[in-house]
Every structure is written in structure tokens, then in C-alpha cells.
């Protein structure tokens, strides 16, 4: 039924235990004034230690909801209806969705960190950036006094901020967007987390800044043996920095594969269409093909079992009206949730 179950049924159990995070059958619902929105349905994926995984999808695909659910900062209207998210800490595996808030607070910032889309709003505007780094350190380490300050300056230097000593006393408004995002990264990585969730970390930034910020995340991840989830709408960006990519559409995981395999031979029609719609340096205008149709209404009582079926040109009545089955493709590690995948 799901990606994870099919994966575990075919791979040895020891690889399952080695996973840093395994999300299984996650259902998230939002209560709204006009009905319940099934924002996520049966979302499953896994992250290995040290791996960078991209979650790619358009707005409304549920990629940010996934991140917020994992961090336990879901909006009050949202509710986890079903599912597990097992996170491997030093000692035990904890279920992030069932853990009490007090122990989640111990995990957040220390083992599990997040970078937000807009660094300017995510940073406290009236607190010096250095202090904002020491706040995290104070919560999760035994450092104090000058040691705290030294460690914060060290963090600023590690995210390649020029003149870290002076910048320690700067306020967010005195820094450019790129520098603010680096401060966010310094805060997120202050306690050397095992997993970093980056939600559109470069969306408001310029391409040149985007490249430096992404390279920084990638380098630090390699240095610290840290796994990262990169949430983005930019397929090309994900292709450059991720080992594996999970493609989401309307709250479903439609495809999950190693990056090279996904781009060489996408199996899900949506992934193929997404690639065709992305402008590329050597793509002709005629080859830029829009995706027809809209996301299905997730408030409706009868959402088609395959949520892409209404936009899909491979749709076949009886066949596709069953719930999309996840099959393992000939290529190892390449999963696709489609009844008529591309060959």
C-alpha cells in the first residue's frame, strides 16, 4: 500500500533499523469552516543517516505540512489522524508524533532542527543575532559565559559570515537576506543535530546567494554527518543538492527515487510533467509544457483514489480508480505510486 511497507518487505530488516527517520502511513487532516481537508494521506518515506533528501512538490502538495508535523509545530487546526514517525536518537527510537511535548522540546534544536522559508521573520528582530545562537546553546549544552560566546562566534565563522566577532552584536535588520539565512543555519546547526529540515531555505534569495547558501548546507551536512530534508518547489535545485528525491502531489507521495534515477527515467506521469514544465538552460520554449488541470479539491467527500487522475493523460477508467498501489520498480530504491507508470 505504501512506499515504506513495500520497501521493508523487500529489503533486509537491518537497513530498516539503520534509518534515522522513518515516516509511515502519515495522515494529517485540517478542520476548516467548509469541511475537513485531507492534507496528507498515507505519506511514507525514510531518511538514512547523513543523507540529503529532497521533498519536491507544488504549493498545496503537503510538503510543508509534512515538515511541520515532524517538528511538532503543526497549526492548531491540523490533526495527525494516523501514522508513525520513528526518529532514531542515541539511545532509542522515538515516535515524534506521540512523544509528549516536554521531551520533544529536548529533541528540537538538539537532534532535530529546522530552517524556515523567510529568515527575516524567523529571527527575533530585537535580539542580537549572537544572542539568538547562544539561546539555543544554553538550552541544550552546559556551556556558559564566555565559552557560550566563543562557541556562537565559532558557529558564525562556520557559516562563513565575514567578521563574526562584529556580527555577533548585529541585529537582523542590519544584515542582508543571505546573511540572515546563514544566521538561521548557524542557529539550526548550533547543537550538531542529526537531522535538519530546511523548508524552502533559499526561496527569497538571489541565485548567486542561493548557490552559496545551498553549498554551505551541503558542506556542513557532510562535515557533521548530518541528514537533511530539503523542502522545495524547485526541482532543479533539489536535483543539484539531494541524494534522493520524494515527489509529492496533493498530499500523496507519488514517487521516491535516487536523484539520478528520477531524472533519467521518471516513472510517475506527474514527475515527468513537472520536469517538462521546469525552465532549463538549454530547453527550447516549445519544450516547456504546462501541466493541465488543478489539484483536486481535498475538502470533497469523494477525492479520487489517485489524486493525479484528473490531470493525467494516462488515466484509464477502471484501473486508475483503485487506490494507487506502490510498486517497487526494476531499478532498486525507485518507488512509484501509479497503476500505469511510465516505462
Amino acid at each position: 500500500m505504501t512506499l515504506h511497507q513495500s520497501a521493508s518487505s523487500t529489503t533486509a530488516t537491518d537497513t530498516v533499523t539503520a534509518q534515522l527517520l522513518s515516516v509511515e502511513n502519515l495522515d494529517v487532516e485540517f478542520r476548516t469552516r467548509s469541511g475537513t481537508v485531507k492534507a496528507l494521506e498515507a505519506v511514507s518515506f525514510a531518511i538514512n543517516p547523513g543523507e540529503t533528501v529532497g521533498i519536491v512538490g507544488e504549493s498545496g502538495s503537503g510538503k510543508s505540512v509534512t515538515a511541520f508535523t515532524l517538528m511538532g509545530v503543526l497549526d492548531r487546526a491540523g490533526k495527525v489522524a494516523n501514522g508513525k514517525a520513528l526518529f532514531q536518537t542515541d539511545r532509542v527510537a522515538v515516535d515524534l508524533l506521540r512523544e509528549p511535548e516536554s521531551s520533544l522540546r529536548q529533541l528540537r534544536g538538539k537532534e532535530l532542527s529546522m530552517i524556515f522559508q523567510n529568515p527575516r521573520t524567523a529571527l527575533n528582530p530585537i535580539r542580537k543575532v549572537g544572542k539568538q545562537i547562544t539561546d539555543v546553546l544554553r538550552c541544550h549544552t552546559d556551556l556558559s559565559g564566555d565559552a557560550l560566546r566563543d562557541r556562537a562566534i565559532e558557529m558564525l565563522a562556520s557559516v562563513r559570515i565575514p567578521d563574526p566577532e562584529q556580527r555577533y552584536d548585529a541585529y537582523p535588520y542590519e544584515l542582508s537576506g543571505g546573511l540572515c539565512q546563514r544566521i538561521m543555519i548557524a542557529i539550526a546547526l548550533a547543537c550538531a543535530p542529526k537531522l535538519l529540515i530546511a523548508d524552502e531555505p533559499t526561496t527569497g534569495l538571489d541565485v548567486t546567494t542561493q548557490a552559496t547558501v545551498m553549498n554551505l548546507i551541503k558542506d556542513l551536512a557532510t562535515q557533521q554527518q548530518m541528514a537533511a530534508i530539503l523542502i522545495t518547489h524547485d526541482l532543479a535545485l533539489a536535483s543539484e543538492y539531494c541524494d534522493r528525491i520524494v515527489v509529492m502531489h496533493a498530499g500523496h507521495v507519488v514517487e521516491s527515487a535516487p536523484t539520478h534515477s528520477l531524472f533519467r527515467a521518471p516513472r510517475h506521469p506527474y514527475t515527468a510533467k513537472l520536469i517538462a514544465a521546469t525552465p532549463e538552460p538549454h530547453k527550447a520554449f516549445a519544450d516547456l509544457i504546462p501541466i493541465a488541470g488543478n489539484l483536486p479539491d481535498l475538502k470533497a467527500t469523494t477525492i479520487p483514489p489517485c489524486r493525479f487522475s484528473q490531470r493525467c493523460d494516462r488515466y484509464e477508467p477502471a484501473l486508475c480508480d483503485q487506490a494507487p498501489l506502490t510498486r517497487q520498480q526494476p531499478v532498486p530504491e525507485h518507488h512509484v505510486a501509479c497503476w500505469k507508470p511510465l516505462e
Binding site: 548557490a211 526541482l235 536535483s239 521546469t278 538549454h282
Partner: peptide, 8 residues
């Protein structure tokens, strides 16, 4: 130009 992300 070199900073544009690309599949290739």
C-alpha cells in the same frame, strides 16, 4: 549564469 540550478 553559473549559479542557475539545472538537472544537467
Amino acid at each position: 549564469i553559473s549559479a542557475i540550478p539545472s538537472f544537467e
